[in-house]
């Protein structure tokens, strides 16, 4: 079985490292981007991404704008995207859901919960891709 690849988009290197640590140990392959613009480019160029974790407040392009842009492309309709952020205002969360995000995780996150959520989504995404 291949290891699903997870893209983490966050301008904080500390968060990227923490995610790499938690998910890497669990056997996932991790790739990184430091802002929405870079994240969008990675999603555009690579076809092996099983799941995206994305911050909201970032320079150049914020996470919600990136989400809306990526989801506007029908090729990404099935790509699970989780927002990983310190924000939690209900209006913002609604905007993310309406744009097609699959979940909203407030930082600082509990590692085992993050892992549960990622496993649930990445594995089903893999299974879909395999069909």
């Amino acid at each position: 079985m291949t290891c699903p690849t997870i893209l983490i988009i966050d301008d904080s290197q500390a968060i990227r490292l923490a995610v790499r640590e938690v998910l890497g140990q669990a056997g996932f392959t991790i790739c990184e981007a430091a802002d929405g613009e870079e994240g969008r480019r990675v999603i555009e160029e690579r076809d092996d991404i099983s799941l995206v974790l994305c911050d909201v407040n970032m320079p150049r392009m914020d996470g919600l704008s990136m989400l809306e842009m990526v989801k506007a492309d029908p090729r990404n309709a099935e790509l699970p995207i989780l927002m990983l952020t310190t924000e939690g205002e209900p209006g913002m969360v609604r905007r993310a859901r309406d744009a097609g995000a699959r979940g909203w995780i407030v930082k600082p996150f509990q590692p085992e919960l993050l892992l549960t959520a990622v496993r649930r989504l990445a594995v089903s995404a893999e299974a879909r891709a395999a069909k």
Binding site: G103, I105, Q110, A117
Partner: peptide, 11 residues
């Protein structure tokens, strides 16, 4: 539901 979830962390 559509499966959307929110994890509050330490909030």
């Amino acid at each position: 539901g559509d499966g959307f979830f929110t994890m509050l962390g330490n909030m």
